[in-house]
Nucleic acid binder design. Structure first.
Length: 256
DNA sequence: CGTTAGGCACTGGTTCCGTA
DNA sequence: TACGGAACCAGTGCCTAACG
């Protein structure tokens, strides 16, 4: 009992789904897209993790040992190893399916991880390249349960930004907008603008244009007070830059 | 008495190697 | 190639004995 400092309820704010049904729908989309990336054993592990993420849709604080035990029981002793489970976590994190948060016990010692499933993006699901090989948990700093409780009232900082946002983008924005939600919103605007073009751009190009646009926004914000809505302004810059880029790529005939 | 150091336990992370 | 498992690492608190 001393292992857990509280129930899963206190991680409520981590859930990105309004219902279990919604979570299942998103997970199915992830599976249809990414299940080939995972081995048979890894799929067993992932699906078991999903079943441990029901109380709070898409969030699990079960420890690896517990889940392995459950798998072993389910498969009559022919379960999977800790190595396989961890390989699954690495892959699923890299694919953007889930995010891992470290937690501590009340007394400060390391506790089980918090596994948070991400929503399936409405645009393109993140590619491995876009993830910047971010295999590690996206949380550099340790969190503890007390912290998490305290953060209920406040917003989560940039370390909680979803894995679908490329790291260089986070690294730039965090100095100006330290909140994860804001950074994610900027990235959402980016993907909306990109998808609107109907052109397929590679991830590094998108990132480059996004960063340029954001820098231009910051420049504007510092030099004038005319920026009323930072997202809208950013979106405007982005659209222009994307149009120019595509124009350069494909020539005038597209717009004639 | 209070403090400190050492060993233990618990967790996750990484790497490596043998095997089917 | 997927997998299991061992060996190592790190970080923390707990317990206890020794110390001043």
């Amino acid at each position: 009992m001393n292992l857990k400092t509280g129930s899963i309820d206190q991680f409520k704010e981590y859930s990105k789904f309004s219902s279990l049904k919604e979570f299942n729908t998103h997970f199915e989309m992830w599976m249809s897209k990414s299940k080939d990336e995972l081995s048979k054993g890894e799929l067993v592990a992932l699906k078991r993790l999903v079943r441990f993420s029901a109380k709070l849709p898409g969030v699990s604080n079960a420890k690896i040992g517990t889940m392995l035990k459950a798998i072993h029981e389910e498969y009559n002793g022919n379960g999977i190893s800790r190595s396989t489970f961890k390989r699954m976590i690495l892959k699923a994190t890299a694919l953007g399916i889930l995010t891992v948060h470290e937690t501590e016990r009340k007394n400060g010692s390391q506790s089980s991880n918090l596994y948070v499933f991400n929503r399936f993006p409405q645009s393109e699901p993140p590619k491995a390249k876009q993830m910047n090989h971010q295999y590690k948990a996206s949380i550099p700093s340790k969190t503890n349960n007390k912290d998490i409780k305290e953060r209920k009232e406040t917003c989560l900082d940039y370390t909680y930004t979803s894995n679908r946002v490329p790291k260089p983008f986070i690294d730039l924005l965090k100095y100006f907008f330290p909140m994860a939600k804001t950074i994610e919103e900027f990235w959402n605007m980016t993907m909306i603008a990109v998808n609107k073009t109907k052109f397929t751009l590679d991830s590094s190009t998108i990132l480059e244009i996004a960063i340029q646009s954001f820098k231009q926004l910051i420049g504007k914000m510092k030099s004038s007070t005319s920026v009323k809505n930072q997202f809208a302004y950013y979106y405007g810059i982005l659209n222009k830059k994307l149009a120019r880029h595509i124009h350069e790529l494909f020539g005038n005939w597209l717009y004639s």
